[in-house]
């Protein structure tokens, strides 16, 4: 559900040689984060947390993948 403009800015600034966000781009990001923070905290069940932990453990850089 990330808005297109936010996604575009994050893609543009990713990468070692990319320029940091302009003031206008920063304003878009700040507004997006402020909108998110105005919402109530997401309710996460135990299952959600457990699945996230398993994905972290078994992911490409997870604990299991380490030699």
């Amino acid at each position: 559900g990330r808005p297109d403009d936010v996604r575009a800015i994050l893609e543009r600034i990713s990468g070692a040689e990319a320029m940091p966000p302009s003031p206008a781009e920063q304003a878009v990001l700040v507004r997006y984060v402020a909108e998110l923070r105005a919402q109530p905290r997401a309710h996460r069940t135990f299952n959600d947390r457990w699945s996230a932990w398993i994905a972290y453990r078994d992911g490409p850089n997870g604990l299991r993948a380490r030699p």
Binding site: L10, I13, A16, P20, V33, L36
Partner: peptide
């Protein structure tokens, strides 16, 4: 600059994780 950019990215993804 790289630190600032990663801080921005982390702030956005943290807010999404907590509130979406």
């Amino acid at each position: 600059v790289a630190g600032i950019k990663s801080q921005i990215t982390r702030a956005v993804s943290d807010a999404e994780k907590t509130h979406l």
